[in-house]
Computed example of a mutant assay.
Amino acid sequence: MTAAADSELELLAAELPIAGLTFRRLHLPDDAGRLAELYNAAAIADNSGESGNAADWEHWLAHPSGMDPMTDALVVELAGEIVAYAQARVDRDNDGGRNYLTGGEVAVEHRGHGIGRALLHHNERHLRVLAATHPAGLEKRLESWSYDSQVRCNRLLESEGYETVRYFFEMLRETLDEIPDLPLPSGLEIRPLRPDQYRQVFDADVEAFRDHWGGMDETDDAFNRHFSGPNFRAELVRVAWDGDEVAGVVNNQVMTGYNEKTGARRAILNGVSVRRPWRRRGLARALVADSLRGLRDAGFTSAALGVDADNPTGALGVYEATGFVVERSGRTYRKPL
């Protein structure tokens, strides 16, 4: 651990003089399962629906977006038990700016003692140090994300000057019955995905999402995270081809942690993208419908996805037309750095 990291933890300890509370950096892979337990318990209390397992956390921390797990995250313990976690990340925004993301969780039984606020202050200090190393001309803003049901978190962020700038929906198709028959546009076809095509498909997905609000991680870590790990199954991914060109992609993945926790057989349409030349032709609907049939045939019984409530390409209507309904909503908060 660097001297700077030591001083960060000393500042945090001074802000949280709670007897027995200790602060440290991550110990991997040992912390992965304990972090999954922390977040799963919080999800039940907050009705956020999230569930992960140790493998999910190990995969994320092996291929993180915009952070170094050894310096940009920390663990809070009490009597050897993890009672809170914080992480700070940096995203490049599609508008050319930088988003400095603060996130974390506090165990339900340890809320109300100022831990969450102190971790937010820590993350902000840490992110300002990182921001000072980036070009001065960039627009820089602090950012966080939460579900509407996370009332305490929302109240904390708003009391610290964060404002809602965007809303998002999580949508659910409770069954995979009565899937609409929506053919692909003329000239396009869906083919099985081969490993030698992973990078081309990833690059096409990145290109399509550059038109969307926010940022899209284009790093090798993002590539490796999307095309490997416990939730990735190549046969579930749907890619529409126009000759040798990728026209659209749906990166369907297994919700392994959620399924283990609940006994469900659910998958997630983890990103639906269509490149500009092939938009407004019904390709997204056809890809979603074919994805649902593929998931049903693979033994899944329900499907989920997330969508920007103000998506400029009409994604919400596409998902409603293919049988999805809004299950819960969340929001992005920002404030000037």
Rank of each mutant, 00 (worst) to 15 (best):
Y39A: 13
K261N: 14
A79V: 06
L127D: 00
G263D: 11
P185F: 08
N94A: 09
G271K: 11
A79F: 07
M67L: 13
R293F: 05
R173G: 01
F227Q: 03
S159V: 01
E105K: 05
V239P: 02
L295F: 07
R152K: 14
D217N: 15
R334P: 02
N123K: 00
Q197K: 04
R210Q: 10
H212N: 14
H110Y: 15
R34W: 13
E105L: 09
A240G: 07
R111I: 05
V307C: 08
R233V: 04
G243F: 02
N251P: 04
I44Y: 11
G229D: 04
G214P: 14
P64L: 01
H126L: 12
S149Y: 04
R296I: 08
L16C: 07
R276H: 15
I115H: 01
A321C: 07
N53P: 09
F232Y: 15
G96E: 02
A4F: 03
N231R: 12
R334T: 10
R173T: 01
A45L: 09
S159N: 06
E81L: 07
A79C: 06
N311E: 14
G263P: 12
L176I: 13
D6P: 02
G314L: 15
A208C: 00
A286P: 08
R98V: 10
A234V: 15
N251F: 06
H63L: 04
T301N: 08
A303G: 03
G97V: 06
P135D: 14
